[in-house]
């Protein structure tokens, strides 16, 4: 394992700083939202985590395709990293959304398209890890993983579309109208906090993925050493 590159060290520090700034902006800088009160401050992190969760999902599907074409293990490492970090962030998105929904709509959960798709996506992620766990051969593990991320990447948007199309027949609690109102009524300071949260989580996302990719490299090294020793 190579020593930690300087760029990564810098990125670590930057991640902590932007997280701190983003927290400050969300907690103190942005004005209190008038309709929902303090809980609206969760919104900045909710959007930030949702954005990177989605980004990771797309990146995983893309690197899955690249892996299948090139058969280069480095894309598999990247894919695993993207899925794992996104799983963590998407979990946060769902929990934060729930915490927000409780005082705002008086329910922990609504079967709104975005929430439902997020939950289904999270299940696809979990299935992905269960699939990988059941395979010993690293090359086969990488191939199956790539195929499954690709299937998930195609199916998740269709799920979203399907639920959204049927919503007109199947009414759900307020949902979309409320969220749009927020966006429209965002003041300048709120926008600063909002965009900074997006930026901050992107940095943190890159940092975590980098660490996870290095971890996979180490895993691979251990597997190779084990083979060598046992021979």
């Amino acid at each position: 394992m190579q020593p930690k590159p300087t760029a990564l060290k810098i990125l670590d520090v930057v991640s902590i700083i932007v997280l701190a700034i983003s927290t400050y902006l969300a907690l103190f800088f942005a004005p209190t939202e008038l309709v929902m009160g303090q809980v609206q401050r969760v919104f900045y992190f909710h959007i930030g985590t949702a954005w990177v969760g989605l980004l990771g999902f797309v990146l995983a599907a893309v690197s899955g395709v690249i892996y299948l074409v090139t058969k280069d293990m480095k894309w598999d490492r990247f894919e695993v990293a993207a899925v794992e970090v996104s799983t963590m962030f998407f979990f946060l998105t769902i929990v934060l959304g729930s915490i927000w929904a409780r005082p705002a709509w008086n329910t922990w959960w609504t079967w709104d398209p975005r929430l439902t798709t997020a939950a289904v996506t999270e299940l696809i992620y979990i299935a992905y890890f269960m699939l990988r766990q059941g395979i010993d051969d690293p090359e086969k593990r990488a191939r199956f993983g790539a195929v499954y991320t690709l299937l998930g990447g195609i199916s998740a948007p269709i799920t979203f579309m399907v639920i959204r199309l049927f919503r007109s027949i199947h009414p759900v609690v307020v949902g979309a109208a409320n969220a749009n109102q927020d966006k429209l009524s965002m003041t300048g300071d709120m926008k600063i906090a909002f965009f900074f949260a997006l930026f901050a989580f992107t940095i943190i996302f890159i940092d975590l993925i980098w660490h996870r990719v290095r971890l996979s490299g180490l895993e691979e090294k251990v597997e190779q050493l084990k083979l060598k020793v046992s021979m």
């Binding site: 009160g37 303090q38 809980v39 992190f45 929990v95 934060l96 915490i99 927000w100 005082p103």
Partner: peptide, 17 residues
């Protein structure tokens, strides 16, 4: 409305996770 307890919970969950 006073929803600060929800907010606190949200931030704690984020940092803990």
């Amino acid at each position: 409305p006073d929803t600060s307890s929800y907010m606190t919970a949200g931030f704690i969950v984020t940092f803990v996770t």
